[in-house]
Design a protein around this nucleic acid. Structure first.
Length: 462
RNA sequence: GUGGAUGUAGCUCAGCUGGUAGAGCCCCGGAUUGUGACUCCGGUGGUCGCAGGUUCAAAACCUGUCAUCCACCCCA
């Protein structure tokens, strides 16, 4: 295949039939975000490069599409929505109502190698709250994630939860030097994939001793029968025993308390069940709570997270995580705004679409096709009447495609309509024109009837 | 950035130890000038990813290169 006719690496063309699911997923996400009180915003696809790279870490910086405009401004394509949000918030702070709850759905760009579920141009959908340090924000975002995924019909996924403060604390308690923290975290993040041996190997490659790994593991070695609350309480005891530095100890405890607060909030449906509006609501709350699990190995990338972090991944489709987020307090300060608490979640729209398409091939059949009727006519004499009938149908909400054939050919046009998945085929010929009617044919059942436009609308609307 | 696999018709692919390309689907025309899913007949379509090299001869072997997919890194 000639390279000229391919879209650039990591980008894709979408066929009309692909768009049906894509639209559906994005609309569902929009609806859910709105139901949770988030308002939609938009911002430029490109920003000043300097702004994008301000706090993202060198790995990500390499992935920014960078270019110069004709006035030699250094610009970059947004690779996610958090730094642009920081800039947006700082720019518009006085016009925004706090806490600022906004969502955005749009394309982002990353210059990286493609792979299953990874593209260079892809959609992300973010919901963020700026202006609160309360853990209620985390609860709201996690509940929103659960709610949205249920609406999307996603199944068999888990929401894992950890905290940057806790990670910093146990890294310190395990005797790992601050300078080697990042390397250690990177190795631990992969624990599930590469196993204990793999982590130890990677530790050693970064001059971190096996004994550090052992003491790390001792801190998070919990009896499997313990629930997350007990695990966190246990962890708190151990930290208090092994950490000398008061600042580190306090910070870690703070992180633990924060996660406990989030978990307790989820359980509230259980404790005050009698006050709930109905049992279905209580069940959903409980299910949401059960879906959230504390995972001390969860690390997450990006340099800006400061508190709780979370990630949502499929348990049966190997595509990585399809949503993630966390708290990034005071990030807006970098862009010139007053420091504010902030937390957000990001949905990987492409991955969600990939998973739905892979697991539920029938889903497209349940979604209405965009064009319902094809309007053909047999000669120029009937064209005007056909055109008016088509417009009448359109005004009444029936998606109608009017023939544009130069020489009407019913056989070919039926074939075309059928191939396109259009349900109904209408013909206006001499006979129909004289009676001011149309022949309406159902292409599936092959039933045909002679009706007026009003009758056709009535019929098609039922 | 690293490793593996794969590039042959619009699509999916076949093509043996080198002898100069084939199937199915699609598309187009006809049987069928107011009715499509089946059938039948006919037809269009390929610098075998690209560039070198080996050879009397390369789609096949060698080298390089590009692209795609998968995995690592990192991440949605």
């Amino acid at each position: 295949m000639s390279k000229l006719i391919q879209p650039p690496k990591g980008t894709r063309d979408f066929l009309p039939e692909d768009m049906i699911l894509r639209r559906k997923v994005m609309e569902t996400i929009r609806e859910c975000f709105a139901l949770y009180g988030f308002v939609e915003i938009d911002s430029p696809v490109f920003e000043y490069f300097e702004l994008l790279s301000r706090k993202c870490g060198s790995e990500i910086e390499k992935e920014i599409y960078i270019f110069e405009d004709k006035a030699k401004r250094k610009l970059g394509l947004r690779f996610e929505f958090t730094s642009p949000l920081g800039r947006y918030y700082a720019t518009n702070a006085e016009k925004l109502t706090k806490p600022f709850k906004r969502y955005i759905i749009g394309k982002v760009y990353r210059y990286e190698n493609t792979q299953a579920g990874r593209y260079r141009e892809f959609y992300q959908a973010d919901a963020d709250i700026i202006g609160s340090y309360s853990m209620n924000v985390e609860n709201e975002l996690l509940d929103l994630a659960f709610f949205t995924l249920e609406k999307l019909g996603m199944e068999n996924y888990e929401i894992v939860l950890n905290s940057r403060k806790i990670l910093d604390g146990i890294i310190n308690a395990a005797g790992i030097d601050e300078s080697k923290k990042d390397a250690a975290l990177r190795a631990l993040d992969k624990a599930a994939k590469i196993g204990e041996g793999g982590v130890i190997k990677e530790f050693k490659e970064n001059c971190i001793g096996e004994e550090n790994y052992r003491s790390f593991m001792r801190l998070i070695d919990f009896d499997i029968s313990l629930d997350d609350e007990k695990k966190l309480s246990k962890l708190k005891e151990r930290i208090n025993e092994s950490v000398k530095d008061e600042t580190v100890k306090n910070k870690t405890n703070e992180g633990i308390e924060e996660l406990l607060s989030i978990i307790k909030n989820f359980k509230i449906a259980e404790t005050v069940g009698g006050e709930a509006v109905d049992t279905e609501v209580v069940d959903t709350c409980l299910k949401a709570g059960d879906t959230v699990k504390f995972d001390p190995f969860l690390v997450r990338g990006l340099g800006y997270y400061t508190g709780p972090i979370f990630e949502i991944k499929s348990k049966d489709v190997a595509i990585g995580s399809f949503a993630a987020g966390g708290r990034y307090d005071n990030l807006v300060e970098l862009y010139g705004a007053r420091p504010e608490g902030a937390c957000g979640i990001s949905f990987g729209v492409e991955r969600i679409i990939d998973i739905i398409a892979k697991k539920n091939k029938d889903i497209l059949k349940a979604i209405a096709l965009p064009v319902r009727l094809y309007m053909a006519y047999l000669s120029e004499n009937e064209r005007t009447f056909a055109l008016q009938t088509a417009k009448f149908l359109r005004l009444n909400g029936i998606n109608t495609e009017l023939s544009v054939s130069k020489e009407p050919n019913i056989g070919k046009e039926i074939k075309y309509a059928d191939k396109k998945g259009i349900e109904y085929f209408a013909v206006i010929g001499e006979k129909e024109f004289s009676e001011r009617k149309l022949s309406l044919k159902n292409l599936k059942t092959r039933m045909e009837m002679l009706v007026t436009a009003e009758e056709a609308i009535k019929y098609l609307k039922q």
